[in-house]
């Protein structure tokens, strides 16, 4: 598939990258029909976000059509139209069940660092 990828400060390319695969039972794959560039993508473009690596795929404002779902997905089916929230959340933890999806305990691998910064 095509994707906009990061190759350093001010260097973004439209590359061919491997198609995504279902890796977890709760994954879904969408065929993107529209996406947008966000002001926060410019922080990455400007090289001020640590941890970016060559070839990382950019973008978090996206939507599309579901083309494949994992075995554990019960609320989506192939053909559904979806918008993807920029906050990736599990929906089940202490914070998600209270509506604080952006505080999800399971989606941020660097929680201790995030709390300090």
């Amino acid at each position: 598939m095509k994707a906009l990828t990061w190759h350093g400060k001010g260097d973004i390319r439209c590359d061919s990258v491997p198609d995504p695969k279902i890796e977890d039972g709760r994954d879904a794959i969408i065929k993107v029909t529209a996406c947008a560039i966000c002001g926060s993508d410019l922080h990455i473009y400007g090289g001020i976000i640590p941890g970016m690596e060559h070839g990382d795929v950019l973008g978090h404002e996206t939507m599309g059509e579901v083309v494949e779902v994992g075995a554990g997905v019960g609320n989506l089916k192939v053909g559904d139209r979806v918008v993807v929230p920029f906050t990736i959340s599990c929906g089940e933890c202490f914070f998600c069940t209270r509506g604080f999806y952006s505080g999800c305990e399971r989606s941020n691998p660097d929680r201790a660092k995030a709390a300090k910064l």
Binding site: L4, C14, A36, I37, D41, Y45
Partner: peptide, 26 residues
């Protein structure tokens, strides 16, 4: 289109051409 993405990043960053929000489609 997505192919124009790299140029649009620059236009959006520089606020050129009256750019406020960019939408890319395949």
């Amino acid at each position: 289109s997505l192919e124009d993405g790299p140029d649009l990043y620059k236009i959006f960053r520089d606020k050129h051409d009256g750019c406020i929000k960019v939408v890319l489609k395949p």
